[in-house]
Design a protein around this nucleic acid. Sequence first.
DNA 1: CGTCATCCTGTGGTCTGACCACACGTGCTA
DNA 2: TAGCACGTGTGGTCAGACCACAGGATGACG
Lengths: 245, 245
Amino acid sequence: MDAETSDTPRAWRIVLEHVEAQLLEGALRPGDRLPGERALSAELGVGRSSVREALRVLEVLGLIRTAAGSGPNSGAIIIATPGGGMSALMRLQVAASGFPVADIVRTRLILESSVAGDLAEATSPTGDAPDLAPAELLLDAMDSPDLSPTEFLALDAAFHLALAEASGNQVITATMAGLRSGIEGYAREGLAAIIDWHATSARLRREHRGIVEAIHRADAATARTRTHDHISGYYAETFVDTPTP
Amino acid sequence: MDAETSDTPRAWRIVLEHVEAQLLEGALRPGDRLPGERALSAELGVGRSSVREALRVLEVLGLIRTAAGSGPNSGAIIIATPGGGMSALMRLQVAASGFPVADIVRTRLILESSVAGDLAEATSPTGDAPDLAPAELLLDAMDSPDLSPTEFLALDAAFHLALAEASGNQVITATMAGLRSGIEGYAREGLAAIIDWHATSARLRREHRGIVEAIHRADAATARTRTHDHISGYYAETFVDTPTP
DNA sequence: CGTCATCCTGTGGTCTGACCACACGTGCTA
DNA sequence: TAGCACGTGTGGTCAGACCACAGGATGACG
């Protein structure tokens, strides 16, 4: 009953692969509860520490949510919130210099321009259109004159995320959430570089409205261009070395 | 000396944030070694188990590499390999139904088309061009007539990844690697749906050459279109329900 | 004096057992 | 019947103990 290190390296990986296999074969679905840590430990023949290490990974990756106590809400429950894991990954990779900030900005540029264009293309004159209401609600909130730059920034991030959500592509939504948190620290620093915040925020609001307007008009090309200019323009103002490909 | 659960929930998160803070302030850089698990445990006032859980997360996320033994190569060493973490994240999210396969394909479409276009735009007639040699080497390898479909698929994946690497955008490279592994299982299954493998592989080779040719010719629009058609065409053949936006 | 085998040390990897705080369900009590 | 106390099972954490491994330090031997 030792660590059986000879034939199976990394006990926690056994647990991880077991859970992944269960997910793939459908034995485990979102909303289901994993067996208890002690039960998993006995079932897989590994120590509880190893089980916990695997569960911790799953938790950070946004696959499970854990809660103590008893009852239906306790234990490890399968969820699928990719945003959290993506954010952690991007944030740490940026911190470790694995992801240059410029590359993140470039990727945002690509994804968001594409999203705006797709939203416009999905808008047909017959009324069949993606739901932009959440995004427009955020735009209204950003019109409030007594917002601190930080608050404005948060709403701005939420607006861009709302557009991604409206596109219905969960991968892009999660990725954009991750990209955002990856450069969040830099974005906060960048606020200091803005000379005239009043003018800048007014321009940002105007550009946001312009993007939404182009989408409503089903003008994909304009939506793409405006989104591209909006993002690259902002970063050009806050970072001196921002690329504008 | 109890778990000090009252003021600080989640001991492992303390470790995670400590490492992240050290990374952000530059006290920890790629190539550096983290303190030993026992040392970190004592330094942060948490148990070694908690330290290990945090380290496990960092390892899966591709931020550290651990090795037992002694010497300069032992311990936890900061690396920055975003591909690994991204792959694990995508794979598990797909398994948990958090990422629909269709969304992954759509995202691939967007990113790869953009990459091809950017590569073409970066190609100037004066000889200033991105390095496509690794990608073309893979194309040569794919011309070998005695490749199994699985081997071909692996080379195909490597080729697409090589294009992303040529673009120099590490975020896109890592993301595409992740997207790829997310649908790897489905791609393998999809092989069975191909009726005439010989014809399909010939077409794929031809299309690959076409993409590279357009890039060399600095024809961004064609490079984008060909990449888009290449990917969506392949998925249309292997998955019946593949979107073609 | 040089070379090689040996031991020693420190590392991650794992297991075990023991607590704690918490939330729920049960069943007793008023 | 309504309310509350207790028991139980959950994750969260810690402490200690081994193991396997890699490398350096130490010594014996040619």
